[in-house]
């Protein structure tokens, strides 16, 4: 997937506590390390565990001035497929743009439940994180898929940022397990 505008715009749909903000910030940090301009902020609704949340991310090779919420995304990431029934996740998404979903379902099954003509990229981020990390960490695992689909930054940049942020917090062994899971999501079809 290539840029079709100056700025690539993302919306992350998730539930409070699933770590969409962290995922967006890891991509942002990696993009800055590669010399880009970024902006990411949550939709500042009431923040409750389990409630639907939206997080916006912009990446550009030019300085970003706008503060408006993303209304015409190039990529939508859904961290929880139960949101598909309550949130209009494909709003503003054209058929040449991408929908990335954490789900055990196949893309064609998802297509039956939502109206969307573009490409749907499903990845079982829950399954991968349970299998590789032993914990539910779909937000970091899905980074692999996002990078594969969007090519917005290099996978190595993401892994480097991930290590920088998490190695001290969760320990080297756990950190490397997460890295392995991100790589697995990157390679998944």
């Amino acid at each position: 997937m290539k840029y079709h505008k100056d700025t690539m715009e993302f919306i992350f749909f998730a539930r409070g506590g699933q770590g969409a903000k962290t995922a967006a910030e890891i991509i942002a940090q990696a993009a800055v390390a590669e010399g880009n301009f970024v902006q990411t902020f949550p939709n500042f609704g009431p923040e409750r565990s389990g409630a639907p949340t939206k997080t916006y991310l912009r990446i550009s090779d030019k300085a970003i001035r706008t503060k408006e919420p993303v209304i015409d995304p190039d990529v939508v990431v859904v961290l929880d497929d139960t949101l598909l029934s309550s949130q209009k996740v494909t709003e503003g998404l054209d058929k040449n743009e991408a929908l990335i979903i954490n789900s055990t379902k196949h893309s064609h099954e998802i297509r039956n439940t939502i109206r969307f003509d573009g490409k749907i990229h499903a990845v079982d981020a829950n399954g991968i994180s349970m299998e590789v990390v032993g914990q539910l960490r779909p937000n970091t695992v899905i980074l692999g898929k996002i990078i594969k689909v969007t090519e917005i930054v290099k996978l190595e940049s993401i892994l480097e940022e991930f290590r920088k942020i998490f190695e001290e917090k969760i320990g080297k062994e756990n950190c490397e397990k997460n890295i392995l899971a991100i790589e697995k999501a990157y390679d998944s079809i």
Partner: peptide
């Protein structure tokens, strides 16, 4: 808008 927005 500014206090919680991540930017360069």
């Amino acid at each position: 808008n500014t206090s919680h927005s991540v930017e360069n």
